[in-house]
Computed example of a mutant assay.
Amino acid sequence: MAFIDTLVMGKPAWMWAIFMTIVVILLAVDLGLFHRKAREIGVRESLLLSAFYITIGLAFGAWVWLNIGPTSGKEYLTGFLVEKTLSMDNIFVMSLIFTYFGIPRIYQHRVLFYGILGVILLRGIVIALGAWLVASFHWVLYIFALLLIFTGIKMLLPGDDEPDIEENFALRIMRRFLRITPKLHGQRFFIRQPDDKTGKILTWVTPLFVAMILIEIVDVIFALDSIPAIFAITTDTFVVYTSNIFAILGLRALYFALAAVIDRFSYLKPALAMILVFIGSKIFVADLAGWEKFPSSVSLSVTIALIAGGILYSLWRTQRDPEPPSPNDKVQNAKPGDV
């Protein structure tokens, strides 16, 4: 029984056990109960699932507040909100990937579900590395802060940052070294079929598998923003990891709810850019002011204000302006199912 009180990355093992138990239950219920068979997820169901995951994430934040302290609770909520907002760009890129490969909605949940499993592991590795760097070299926090400020300013500058799926380096590598079927084969990632030239039965990967790998890579790229952001908010590894994972767990449901209307929130991106600049700047402000730490209440309040402002302004502008094009309409040279 002494094990449950053993410190693991600064927190008792029982806290980590509670967190991992909740995550495993959520994943098991998602796959085993709600989505045992491939089916299309409607907007209403997506909104309900999103509300459910957000409620679970906020409830865990309340638990952190009560069991670790108000400061940790505020830092968790700030990190949770920032990660949720960052996922908006993630959703847009996912939409481009699915459109490029012509993957229907009925199979998209399978890709996102197994993608989330990979994300949980990858984020754990990246966060553990980040925690080690911060603990060993405190000045790394200033590098993270400068990276956030630079990224935020870059996001505010005009320019088309839409990724080109066709010219993606990872896709070119997979095309070179993997046997990829030209068309989908239901919800299967791998199939056995004869080679066109030799007639030998070989294992092939399907476009569904390729899309999943690209989504994993996208998450690693987005982690370059979100991980420095959360470490600039708090260096508590437990708060960093749990806030990230609870924000990501609801990403699948949020995708189906927002993929078709993501451009309605086009003015959320400047708000996110300002959040990144603010989070990066507050480390330097705290040093100049002689504070041990920037007030967590201020961080949470500013983050909520910027996100709410970005959402409300986006909704107001899109009511006045003509309907913007869907993200799927922006994909150029996309050949559904053709890789």
Rank of each mutant, 00 (worst) to 15 (best):
T6A: 12
L7P: 00
M9G: 02
P12L: 10
W16E: 06
W16M: 02
A17M: 11
A17Q: 01
I18V: 15
I22G: 00
V23K: 00
V29K: 04
L31E: 11
A38R: 01
R39I: 01
I41H: 05
G42I: 03
G42Y: 00
V43T: 14
R44E: 07
E45S: 05
S46V: 03
S50Y: 01
I56G: 00
A59G: 12
V64Q: 04
V64S: 06
G69V: 11
T71P: 00
G73I: 09
L77A: 11
L77P: 02
T78D: 04
T78N: 03
F80R: 03
F80E: 09
V82D: 05
S87F: 10
V93M: 10
M94E: 05
P104V: 07
Q108F: 05
H109R: 15
G115V: 14
I120R: 02
L122C: 13
G124V: 02
V126C: 10
A128P: 02
G130M: 13
W132Y: 15
S136N: 14
H138D: 14
I143P: 04
I143R: 07
I143D: 11
F150A: 15
T151V: 10
G159A: 09
D161S: 11
E162Q: 14
E162M: 09
P163L: 10
D164W: 00
I165K: 13
N168Q: 14
F169M: 13
M174G: 05
R176Y: 10
P182Y: 07
Q193M: 12
D195F: 01
D195T: 08
T206E: 11
P207S: 07
I215E: 08
I217K: 06
D219C: 10
V220E: 11
L224K: 05
S226C: 01
P228M: 13
F231S: 11
T235R: 00
D236V: 03
T237W: 06
V240F: 02
I245D: 07
F246A: 08
L249Q: 09
Y255G: 07
F256V: 14
V261Q: 12
K269W: 13
P270W: 13
A271L: 08
A273Q: 07
M274T: 15
M274K: 04
I279G: 01
S281I: 01
L288Y: 08
A289K: 07
W291S: 06
F294T: 08
S297E: 13
S301G: 11
A305K: 00
A305S: 13
L306I: 11
L306P: 13
A308M: 12
G309A: 11
G310K: 05
I311S: 08
D321K: 13
E323T: 15
E323D: 13
P327T: 12
N328M: 08
N328K: 13
D329N: 10
K330V: 02
V331Y: 03
P336R: 03
G337I: 01
G337F: 03
D338C: 00
